[in-house]
Design a protein around this nucleic acid. Structure first.
Length: 778
DNA sequence: CAGTGAGCGAGCTTCCGCTTGACTT
């Protein structure tokens, strides 16, 4: 019989709190929400003022049963879910589902898991705030209405299995629009002029002073003209200014900033960061990892200060409280920090250690002094021209927090400013010129999103919550709207003009640009769906839609608005859009007409087909005996929006018959795994140097023979007793193959000496081959 | 594993936010 039952959301939290509360308290966890809207008929009675129909999810039945029986016997039940909208709703659902007696139920909240905070909470219980619960219900119901009414429209008008939602559709929109900005971007170039001067230092040695001209030239001729004038110029120091400056540490981590920094500094994916953080949390090493708060408990701040003083001395400590600036933050938890701020290192996997190190450094640095800098600017006058060279340098006078941690930026080619120490220089000093370089530089197109920079953008717009950032990224990829990939860059020429020893030399150089690593790209289907939704469901696709409804939810929470009225006001015009779209909208397939096929005079077009994007020559026609169009799938890297007529026509040149070998046809085509030769129903991959459009028969035969040679080596033995039983050589060494299933050989067995009986035993001993549980692709 | 581009029209798909495991590769 328990005296007091405390229910929290997370089991790891339950364990910690139980220690603080002593033997009169049993602390259990609800594992998040215990009920949700039924999936049948929306789970909402739309006719009846949107009455929700909640059911206990199957995977929560056991939890609910246990909590119910514990609650029945308890003298007091303490609902201690988080203090935010979802937490309040969880408490209310518990109240309803466990049929708790209001006389024996109290609602408590705390924002940090410290003994004081918990005891304080117990001393200040309250009732469930039904208004906040209603705000959550409105949120839930609105999301269900949007998701479950718009998705079926997509099934009818675009493709089955697609999805739309308040959050995911806007996330995809961001990526689609960025991609189009990039395609429309026209790069311009300008000449950046850098002067390299020689200055004698105290020891009479020459040091180099690098200075950039305060103006760029938009043409080569103007840059050349400037260099011409410099050939006879003298260079005089006009001004030297030094100014103190300071830099402050970044606030402690929230979920989104942790994901960003782990991506930039450790190359973790967003979901990888979360699963490693989860491990650290469960091991008691860090505080809760799904939070939008930058707040630190006073205990944490004190421990941090003591550690900083111990490691670096008094001067380095400066305690600070940070304020959350992000839109819609609900601050139910602390920032993400080490549980014990004085614990510099932890045991664990390599990944856990690296992430912990990052969290420790960021948290500690947030309580350290500003870095003090001295910035110096030197202005250099050109005797023959009005333009001036500017040299700037930065010297760190006091490291402060920089001793521990510096936040990274998304800008990969950021100038490493700072560290450069300028040689001592006097005003009016004349400088010797070593050389001046005018280099053609191109303007940068907008950057594609990484997983983490998309999270940053979503958070800025107040879209999504800490617990959903990682799942959102996964969802839009799983639905096939977005792919994360690397793409090769391009080469381009750029010109440099160098003035050295009175002579100007012009050179054309090559540079790579536009190489992408782990970036998010929209797919064709992502673009078609986004356009369709923008056209037909514009209000929901608005970047401010979430912010606007959030404002309404706040009104509900404050009691200024009634939830079913708010939902009703939204639903009427929204549902109208759904009906209207179903009636009047054409099927959307992203069709684009590229031109006319010169060979047949027929129209060439691209669109999304049943199995993905395709190109077609000719049109489908209802007329009797009309020619059917011919089709070809687009290859990876080709996109409906950017493919050209020539590229599309080339697709129809394959499969190509190159001749006959052993009186069987030899054809060449490009498949899912690249270019291949097909002969006698066997497939042989082309090598990188082979071009499927031009390869000739003799080379094809060569490849076929090479493949045969390799295959013959692959078979170690086929048993006479049963030709299905084969010992084969695979990529990872010998293995046993039987009726399309593969089996590992026992360790230390000699494949050559195995008998038929041995092999039968291996098959029996091996786990019964799993049925081909085919995973859905996309 | 390497090609499909329709048809009888069954029965299914889908949202966001809270939480962990239970799964395979």
């Amino acid at each position: 019989m328990v005296k007091n039952l405390v229910i929290v959301e997370s089991p790891a939290k339950a364990k910690t709190i139980e220690k603080f509360l002593g033997k009169d308290f049993v602390v259990k966890s609800s594992f998040g929400h215990i009920r949700d809207l039924d999936k049948k008929d929306f789970g909402i009675d739309i006719e009846n003022n949107f009455q929700p129909n909640y059911i206990v999810s199957t995977d929560k039945k056991a939890v609910v049963k246990e909590l119910k029986s514990l609650a029945k016997d308890a003298e007091m039940v303490w609902l201690a879910s988080d203090e935010d909208r979802e937490g309040e709703a969880i408490a209310w659902h518990l109240m309803e589902t466990l049929e708790l007696d209001p006389q024996k139920t109290k609602r408590i909240v705390f924002h940090e898991i410290t003994k004081n905070a918990i005891l304080e909470a117990i001393n200040h219980p309250r009732q469930i705030n039904k208004q906040v619960v209603d705000a959550q219900q409105a949120r839930r119901i609105l999301d269900r209405l949007v998701g479950f009414e718009v998705s079926p429209v997509l099934w009818k008008k675009v493709k089955p299995q697609l999805s739309a939602g308040r959050v995911q559709s806007v996330a995809v929109r961001l990526i689609v629009e960025r991609e189009r900005e990039i395609h429309q971007f026209e790069s311009t170039s300008a000449y950046r002029v850098t002067g390299f001067f020689l200055v004698k230092d105290e020891n009479g040695k020459f040091a180099e002073l690098k200075a950039e001209l305060n103006q760029r030239f938009d043409t080569r001729d103007k840059a050349k003209a400037f260099l011409d004038r410099c050939t006879s110029a003298s260079f005089r120091v006009e001004d030297v200014t030094t100014k103190p400056a300071k830099r402050s540490p970044a606030p402690p981590f929230t979920t989104s900033t942790l994901q960003q920094e782990a991506s930039r500094k450790l190359s973790f994916s967003v979901s990888q960061t979360m699963s490693v953080a989860q491990k650290l949390y469960e091991a008691g090493k860090i505080t809760y990892m799904r939070t939008d708060s930058v707040n630190l408990s006073s205990l944490a701040i004190h421990t941090a200060k003591a550690k900083i003083v111990e490691l670096f001395g008094e001067d380095y400590a400066k305690t600070r409280q940070y304020k959350t600036s992000s839109k819609g933050a609900q601050e139910a938890h602390e920032a993400i920090r080490p549980t014990y701020m004085d614990q510099e290192n932890i045991s664990g996997t390599k990944q856990e250690q690296r992430l912990y190190d990052l969290i420790w450094k960021r948290s500690i640095a947030s309580q350290m002094s500003d870095a003090l800098l001295e910035k110096t600017n030197i202005t250099i006058q050109v005797s023959t021209a009005p333009e001036k060279f500017i040299a700037s340098g930065e010297v760190i006078k006091f490291e402060g927090f920089l001793k521990v941690y510096l936040e990274s930026t998304d800008d990969d080619d950021e100038q490493p400013n700072g560290e450069s120490l300028l040689p001592p220089i006097q005003v009016n000093q004349l400088l010797d010129l070593n050389q001046i370089v005018a280099a053609q530089r191109f303007s940068q197109r907008p950057a594609r999103y990484t997983e983490a920079s998309l999270v940053k953008k979503l958070e800025e717009q107040g879209i999504g919550r800490p617990s959903t950032y990682a799942p959102i990224i996964t969802t839009i990829q799983n639905r096939g709207y977005v792919v994360k990939e690397d793409r090769a860059g391009f080469e381009r020429e750029f010109t440099t003009l160098t003035l050295h020893s009175g002579k100007i030399v012009e050179k054309v150089n090559l540079e790579n640009y536009g190489y992408e690593k782990s970036k998010l790209f929209p797919t064709d289907i992502g673009m078609v769906v986004t356009d369709f939704l923008l056209k037909n469901f514009n209000p929901v696709m608005d970047y401010n839609f979430t912010a606007n409804v959030e404002e309404q939810f706040d009104f509900i929470a404050e009691g200024k608005e009634e939830w079913s009225r708010m939902i009703g006001d939204f639903y009427k015009p929204f549902h109208q859009l759904v009906e209207q779209t179903l009636q009047i909208s054409e099927k959307a397939n992203g069709e684009r007409i590229l031109g006319i096929d010169p060979a047949s005079g027929k129209q060439v077009s691209v669109k999304i087909g049943r199995f993905g994007p395709l190109a077609q020559i000719g049109e489908t026609s209802d007329e009797e005996g009309a020619d059917k169009p011919t089709f070809a799938s687009l290859q990876s890297g080709m996109h409906i929006e950017t493919i050209t007529l020539d590229e599309a026509l080339k697709l129809f040149k394959l499969p190509r018959e190159v001749g006959e070998y052993e009186s069987k046809k030899v054809t060449v085509a490009i498949g899912r795994f690249g270019p291949y030769i097909r002969h006698d129903n066997k497939f042989v991959s082309l090598e990188k140097s082979d071009d499927p459009y031009t390869i000739i028969l003799s080379r094809a035969i060569e490849l076929i023979e090479a493949k045969r040679e390799k295959d013959s080596k692959a078979v170690i033995r086929v048993f006479d007793e049963d030709p299905d039983m084969k010992l084969l050589n695979g990529r990872w060494g010998p293995y046993l193959s039987y009726q399309k299933n593969n089996y590992k050989l026992p360790k230390n067995s000699q494949a050559e000496s195995l008998t038929y009986a041995d092999c039968q035993k291996i098959i029996e001993a091996g786990n019964s081959p799993k049925k081909a549980t085919r995973k859905k692709k996309k």
